[in-house]
Design a protein around this nucleic acid. Structure first.
Lengths: 350, 350
DNA sequence: GCACAAAGGGAGAGCGCTCTCCGCTCCCGA
DNA sequence: TCGGGAGCGGAGAGCGCTCTCCCTTTGTGC
């Protein structure tokens, strides 16, 4: 065989690099990991040897001795739903939101060389497995997208004292880190905008009221309207689904046909609401102004494009990753929360 | 210390289990891995010890000696785009398609205990890194979503002889495994349906013609229409984006106002096309019948709901994972392709 | 009764890396 | 000139696991 044919046989190890550089394994290791001072000359010699051999550290070996894996998991927890015939992961994975989170997390992870493993926790057992996984050192920590208010995972993680960061405030108070958006502030942006537009009969379509996001968006909006002197705002539960919002909008039109402004607690729901408005011959924004929440891709693809409260998903996800890495690095068990400011993105619907 | 106080200190190892079971490490390992015959009685004793100690194999240690990581990567390759100010991963991650693939892949991986790592290959360097990653044993193989026709990654993978499976036929022929949908057949379903509906003036909005999916959907549709005796089908390039499709539809209406049936090469594009049709006062499906392609979530959320050629994304993704696992297991370097049959999902738009 | 085979279990050598020790060298102050 | 300390490199012990030997036990046929 020519020299080109066998290099794939055995990958270069620290030992090989050491031999080429004429130093010991330990020194090469020190150079690679930038630990302690190594004579600058030797330093260069070693790096040259690394380049020459094409050496890349073996993750498994390193992990074995350090007890760190260099990987974190993105856990999508949807415990407690799942009809038996539900296609594996249901609607969530086909929600653009998921991808945006992944993108944000990866943007932080990539430079630091940490791997991102994707994990689905579909039921309580799976949640327990997630906890044991991280305790057993399969991953160093977890970033969690928890989809249901009664999801047991956050509590399990908090109890286990495992490095974890949630997207969104947990439904019940518990010692666990999270990132969130200032929902009240966002709802206020929407309220102020509708009032400034001159809307006289404002209503809202809320998300599920058993979820923090649902409650906060509703209460925040009501509070802001109250500040504007509007004592009562009719609200209808859209359950965070397009169909739910369509039904809610139908009811709203029936019971309050005079409505001229609606704050809808998510863009997807707003899309449904606008379809119903159109079906009823109402024009948006002239007859009824509509404001969504999230600034998801649905906001742009809807007709008319949606004025919405922007939730900086990518930034928030990136912050989750940063918080987690810090927590893992420090080994200290401190919980932190970071709250992001929302913006009002003004498009055509209001 | 009591026996209860330190268990978290050190995780149980094979050695511990062996001690509890009163056998050697080797035997426990044999039981765990189901390798060779172990006396059924001992077998049980060992399992009891595993349960009692709460033992979970250490991935790193195992990986170190076997040379397998028990992880595969899902690579999203978007080499050669990326404006400098492009938010990390651009639009793709917010496309529901991504999540559906993840779901399909995970459904296969989970039972087999293989981890899924997410990797982004944004440029040629990143592609090279992917190849070296798998050669260096960071992961055992890769599943690839390649977004651009001139993406170098598939060729790199093929050259390196690395275990890999693509979603969709590569733009240029090369020895690499892939799964795909029978596009011609799908286009034929659409053509036959439009003709059966009685459409007299059929046109099509195609995807990018430099992508296999774009070309095949266009040619397949033309061929099928030809079989139906329609020699010429006007076509407009929508570039697989909603905006592109909107422009294409505008042109189509200008140049062929008599059109009464359109095959649009993706649901997202179809959504845009329908909006333009509505803006022009055309009703769907009465004035113009519209058929999409993919059966993505856009098909359901559009008004009216879209009749579309269903691409079984989850199934295809699952098959990718299966092919990859088989390939990794066998260590044989055989390439395979699996082609899925599309269905016509009939909704309201045609 | 013996030779032989087959089968099950144990011992031990690493896999590639980090990290603690230890020892050498060199510089500085007394 | 010499002691002491700081700085830097090397030796070597594992991390937890698999897997190859090898030994023991048991079964089988003549």
């Amino acid at each position: 065989m020519t020299s080109d044919q066998t290099p794939a046989q055995r990958l270069p190890t620290l030992e090989d690099v050491a031999q080429v550089a004429g130093v010991s394994r330990a020194t090469v290791s020190r150079v690679i990991n930038n630990i302690r001072n190594v004579d600058p000359q030797l330093h260069k010699v070693v790096w040259d040897a690394v380049t020459a051999t094409g050496y890349v550290p073996n993750r498994a070996a390193r992990s074995l001795v350090t007890g760190r894996t260099g990987a974190i998991a993105l856990v999508v927890s949807e415990a407690e739903n799942r009809a038996a015939d539900d296609p594996f992961l249901g609607r969530f994975f086909s929600d653009p939101f998921f991808g945006r989170v992944v993108g944000g997390v990866l943007s932080v992870l990539r430079p630091s060389g940490v791997h991102l493993a994707l994990v689905l926790a579909g039921d309580e057992d799976a949640c327990a497995k997630v906890v044991s996984d991280v305790r057993q050192g399969q991953v160093d920590g977890v970033v969690v997208l928890s989809l249901h208010p009664h999801d047991p995972l956050p509590q399990l993680l908090a109890d286990a004292g495992v490095p974890a960061v949630l997207y969104g405030r947990p439904a019940a108070p518990m010692p666990i880190s999270y990132v969130d958006v200032a929902t009240y502030q966002g709802a206020k942006l929407a309220a102020d905008h509708l009032v400034a537009r001159g809307c006289q009969h404002v209503a809202t379509i809320s998300g599920s009221v058993d979820m923090p996001a649902g409650v906060d968006r509703l209460n925040g909006f009501r509070e802001a309207m109250a500040k504007q002197g509007v004592a009562y705002v009719p609200s209808y539960d859209g359950g965070f689904t397009q169909e739910g919002a369509e039904r809610a909008m139908e009811r709203l039109l029936t019971e309050h046909p005079e409505v001229d402004g609606v704050f809808v607690a998510s863009d997807v729901m707003a899309q449904g609401a606008m379809m119903v408005l159109r079906d009823h011959g109402k024009s948006v924004p002239d007859d009824v102004a509509v404001i969504g929440f999230d600034d998801s891709s649905a906001a742009l693809s809807s007709r008319p494009p949606l004025t919405t409260v922007r939730q900086p998903v990518e930034d928030m996800a990136a912050e989750m990753a940063r918080l987690l890495l810090t927590r893992i690095d420090s080994r200290a068990n401190r919980t932190t929360s970071v709250i992001f400011d929302p913006d009002l993105v003004q498009r055509a619907s209001a």
